[in-house]
Each structure stands twice: as structure tokens, then as C-alpha cells.
Nucleic acid binder design. Structure first.
Lengths: 252, 252
DNA sequence: GTCAATTTGTACGTATGTATC
DNA sequence: AGATACATACGTACAAATTGA
């Protein structure tokens, strides 16, 4: 950071175009966002200090701060007093459509996918689940609590219900195979599709925060969906909670 | 609330089925959720006190509290110490797909839709907008800040960019017509579809909270989308912020 | 544990261009 | 044209948090 800014920079060195209607702080934010986007500023790494950036761009520190505030608002960076400003992990693009599979999505991102079975039990369906699965209220279902990780980072947790007696023992298959798709295959269901999907958002409760390894109150995406097999039978009702800090849904 | 519970209720009055594996608090929660769902407990109204409910269902007040906690977690009710527990406004189902129109969605729900133009200006496209619209960085675009209401309740606010010179004067048309669809029709675009849609979630900033009339920090759904006209030209890049308390996205 | 250096957070003040009334 | 409000940009000083010697 030995640059001075008392000598006018040559056009090729000029990082900012002044007086063209685009505010300096916007140009700085765009430049940094682009560098984050192409990995020049790696996820998790510290970006140069405000003082260094004000030197690099030849602006006052406040102008840099305005740009960093815009990036923080978009979730690209996070500043910590006394430490510095750091690049946030980019949310994993998570395609969601009639045939999306968690395991395939994560593998395609070059990460290893696994689903943990946290708990399971058999219970009579509550009103909502019964309606989703087209069962009589009180009909027996398997309930599984699961957590889904990509390279050890929890991305989502879900409550899944499946009708009995058809899927008796499903939880054991899931625990062994770590994937809904593979467990369904084990039960002779080679194809399944989404019948309906609803998406909402809310803050994480204390318990959910522990399951997802996020701070309580952090934003979650709630995805409520029903899956059907090749014959159109409703086979799975799931409420998934995604950490909105780590996942972005891509609609197809 | 004149019932007493010192006399065993007859089977037809029995509200809870004990000893069948479904916890009492779940049955109470299901019952109340169902009453909220069909409007017996109207949105915004106060539900009976915990003491009254414990009398009605013949259970201890703690059991009622467990049920209410489950409803609060799902966002159906909100309890305020010293005041009571109130039914939250049900989120409006908002279908989102290649051809969804805000105005049609809201009209179908029996509410009146209108979009307010909060601000607009012409500016050079920032990096992200330029890429979304397939323009050279710095190409001129119209930027509109809008807010979308159903019966005076703000549901979403959006930042929309359109390429110039094609859509010069669009903001005036929008301000007059209160709808993107109608404003596009005014510019000879009778059909448009979504090219891509990304969905995330985060907390509302102070400014966003004011625009949406929610408390700062309340959850927002962020929907980033690009629209194309009948010829496949990119005509609109929009970042919408939905109040997650008021809207639930339905994927099609 | 203490202290100093580093870094971000906050609060003043000033000046200028632009859009709006 | 003039007045007013607002966003932008720069300057300075100090507070608060973190780190490492």
C-alpha cells in the first residue's frame, strides 16, 4: 500500500470514473463484488482494511465504508470490529424442481453429500400430515428428523413423514444409505417427483439453530413439499429448513 | 366458556382422544390450527386465554401452553405477555412460475392489487444488472423502486431495472397503471416470461422495514428474477423483497 | 494480566452537485 | 430563478473490539 494519491493516476490505472453519474461508492462495491465473484477475494478470507482500500481507490475512508455497507447488506462480506472485514461463504445454489435430488445437487457442486438420521418414530398422522399424504387423520406414519450436510457443513434439516405399512423400516434404510433417493430405491421406488412445494422464511429457533449450527434468529428458508411415486401415490411429506446463509434456491 | 370439567364429558363432546399415541398438546394444536384455518378464529383476533382453553380441553394449562408454543413456532399465533394470544394473518399463497402476475395472484385472493412507484431514475447499469440484462456495463437503464400492496397491506417491495432506450418513459406508465403487466402492454409487450428465479431469505434492514411496514429484522424472502419478452430479449431484472410474515411462495 | 497496535464503529463538521418544489 | 432538500464526498477525532507481544 505504498501508493500515494497526490499524483493524478493515468487513465489505465484509474479505478474510478468520476463525474459520469455512477457514485464512487457504487463503483467500489461493484469492483469488490466482482473480485469476490471470480474468487480473487476468496471466501472466508479477510479483505484489505478500509484504510488500504481508500488508498487503492483514492477515496476517503467513508466512501469505502459506504461501499462495504452495501456489500454487507447483500451478504457478501461481514465486518467485525477490531478484526477486519471478511468474505462470506457464497450460498450454495440449490436447484429445486420436480426432480431435484439433494445428493446430486451437492455432488455437482463438488462437495460430499450425506444425510444424518437424527431421530425417527412411528406415530399417528397429525391433521396437516394426513392431508398432505392423503391419509385418514390418525393413520400411522413414520416420522424422521434428518440433517443434510455438504462437506460437514449442515445445509438443511427436515421432518419427513412416510405412510405405513408401505415404508416400514424406511428409517433403517435411510440411516444406512444417507439419502432419500437411495432409500426409496431400496423400497422399489426408482422414480419420484415433487407434487407441490411451498417456500417461506422465518428466524431459527434455539433448537433449530443447534441442529443447523447457526446462531438462533438467523434466517431460514422453509420448504414444504409432497413427493409422489411413478403411479401418482403420495409417498413423502417433508418440511425442510435451509440455512438461508448457506443456500439459495434456484427455481427450475 | 360456561363449561365445567368436573363432570366427565360424553363421547360426542370429547375433544381429546387419550392413550392413542397422539400427544394431547398435538391434538390441541391441530384443533386450534384447524379452527384458524377455516376462519373460526379470525385473523387478528384474540384467542381464548390459556386458562379458558385448559378448561375447554380438560387439560392442565401447561399442556395448552405446549400447544400454543407449537402454533407460535409455526407463525400461526403470537403471544404478548399481559395482553393475550392473537391469530396472525395467514400468509398469502403467492404462486411463482414462468408466467405468474402479481396483479392476478392478488385479485384471485379477493384482494385489490396495486403497485406504488416509490422512486425512479436513469443510471448506468451496475455490474450485476448489466449481466442480468445482457448489456455492456454502464449502459443506461431505468431503475424503479416499487411497493406492492394487497388491500393497503404491503406484501413486497422491488427494485426493477429495464434497458434503455427501449423502455424510455416506462416509469410514467407504471405510475399511471400500477402494474408491470399493464405497463408492458403499454409498450407493446403483451407476453413475457420468467427466465430465471433465485430465492433466498434474510432479515429486513431499517429502510426495508419502513417500506414494507414490518419491524426491522423480520424475515424477508428475496426473489431475484429476469424476465424475457416473446422474442427472448431480456427486458426486466428485478429483485423483490417479500415480507415472509405475509407471503408464502407456491412453486409451480 | 497488561499494554500497545490494529481495525472497525460512531460522531462531529464542511462542501458540492442534483433533483424537487 | 430561487429555495430547499438530499445524496455524495472528504476531513478529523475518538470509541470499542480484537490481537499479539
Amino acid at each position: 500500500m505504498a501508493e500515494t494519491h497526490d499524483i493524478p493516476v493515468t487513465p489505465s490505472d484509474a479505478l474510478l470514473r468520476r463525474g459520469e453519474g455512477l457514485a464512487a461508492w457504487r463503483q467500489i462495491a461493484d469492483t469488490l463484488a466482482e473480485e469476490i465473484g471470480r474468487g480473487a477475494l476468496a471466501a472466508g478470507s479477510q479483505i484489505p482494511t478500509e484504510a488500504a482500500l481508500s488508498g487503492r481507490f483514492g477515496v476517503n475512508r467513508h466512501t469505502v465504508r459506504r461501499a462495504l455497507a452495501a456489500l454487507a447488506e447483500r451478504g457478501l462480506v461481514r465486518a467485525t470490529q477490531g478484526r477486519g472485514t471478511f468474505v462470506e461463504q457464497a450460498p450454495l445454489p440449490y436447484p429445486i424442481g420436480p426432480r431435484t435430488r439433494f445428493s446430486e445437487t451437492v455432488s455437482r457442486a463438488g462437495r460430499e453429500a450425506w444425510g444424518d438420521l437424527l431421530a425417527s418414530r412411528v406415530l399417528p398422522a397429525d391433521a396437516e400430515t394426513a392431508e398432505a399424504l392423503g391419509l385418514a387423520p390418525g393413520a400411522p406414519v413414520i416420522e424422521m428428523l434428518t440433517r443434510h450436510r455438504a462437506d460437514d457443513t449442515p445445509l438443511s434439516t427436515a421432518r419427513t413423514c412416510l405412510p405405513l405399512p408401505r415404508f416400514a423400516g424406511f428409517e433403517a434404510a435411510y440411516g444406512r444409505l444417507g439419502s432419500i433417493t437411495r432409500a426409496f430405491a431400496d423400497f422399489g421406488v426408482d422414480d419420484y417427483t415433487r407434487l407441490s412445494t411451498r417456500v417461506g422464511a422465518r428466524a431459527a429457533s434455539a433448537e433449530e439453530a443447534i441442529r443447523l449450527d447457526v446462531a438462533p434468529g438467523r434466517p431460514l428458508l422453509t420448504v414444504t413439499s409432497v413427493n409422489i411415486d411413478g403411479q401418482g401415490m403420495r409417498i413423502q411429506a417433508t418440511q425442510s429448513l435451509f440455512s438461508a446463509d448457506r443456500v439459495e434456491l434456484i427455481l427450475e
